[in-house]
Design a binder for these strands. Structure first.
Lengths: 151, 151
DNA sequence: TTGCTCCTCACGTCACGTGAGGTGGC
DNA sequence: TTGCTCCTCACGTCACGTGAGGTGGC
């Protein structure tokens, strides 16, 4: 079944990072540390861990936030699996379910604000570059035109 | 005229950075150091310096590159003013002018590639967030629906 | 003259990179 | 058994932050 466990090097490869980074994130508490691991024993990871790490790296890279800010932004993610577990237990009131959904929606809204601000900045930058290119191309055309013109 | 010189603190304020960063960029050669400045004397900056710094900070922030990569990406900018000066001297062949334009266009093309890749990544991320939100909203609606439904 | 901003060291910090020396699983 | 990957220190590095102590211009 899909319960195969990965080693840290495989996870690093899958997520495009390094083993050092993964250990560092665990050290500062961004990634959970396996409770029952003995000193010196290998770390193992499941599919959910890989997914979480991928999201963390994507946010950090795309949004340029510090790991401290990332920790706050990612609280949603970290609690998602816990919420999912809680969700599955049958004896859960509709009110509680609704509250969980509201909270998750709030976190996503926060992330969307950051992502969209970034995108707007990037688009401004791109527009600026395109305008500059247009200007240079016009100069190039005028240069070529004057060149072939009669004296 | 517009030839007023600014002090480092004003430049920091205008560009949204710190004086330390400006001095550091000068130290590693990302920003030019005034040739004739005596030891201990104040640094002064012109409008062109402010513009260049703004572009550097924007690239670094939006593209997430190291200062070393930034140095390469920004070579275009750093040579722009020199090219502009060369451009103005009248005794310049059309061939040379065309070459200058070609080079500038090449640098802009490089930057556009990086910017557009970033934008694509951000858009994928945004799409993912929106999809997740949609799913959560659907769950919320179903929850509210079942709640009010007749037994 | 009094502040305020600037100056130059220089040590601290964040987010890892990079060996050093050693143990563990196909 | 032989490699290969993993482990834990621990020091190095990049891009600054943050005082310490002192000088210079409205």
């Amino acid at each position: 079944m899909g319960a195969e466990r990965l080693r840290i090097g495989q996870v690093a490869e899958l997520t495009g990072t390094t083993t050092r980074t993964i250990r560092y994130y665990e050290e500062i508490g961004l990634l959970p540390s396996e409770g029952g691991r003995e000193r010196g024993a290998h770390r193992t990871y499941g599919a959910a861990d890989v997914e979480r790490l991928r999201e963390l790296l994507q946010m950090k890279d795309l949004l340029g936030v510090t790991l401290e800010e990332l920790r706050e932004l990612a609280t949603a993610e970290s609690s998602r699996s816990a919420l999912r577990r809680e969700w599955r237990t049958e004896e859960l009131s509709d009110a509680r379910r609704a509250a969980i959904l509201e909270q998750a929606l709030g976190h996503i809204a926060d992330q969307l604000v950051v992502v969209r601000n970034r995108r707007a900045e990037l688009e401004r930058f791109e527009t600026e570059l395109v305008a500059r290119r247009r200007k240079l191309r016009r100069m190039a055309r005028e240069l070529a035109g004057s060149e072939g013109a009669p004296a």
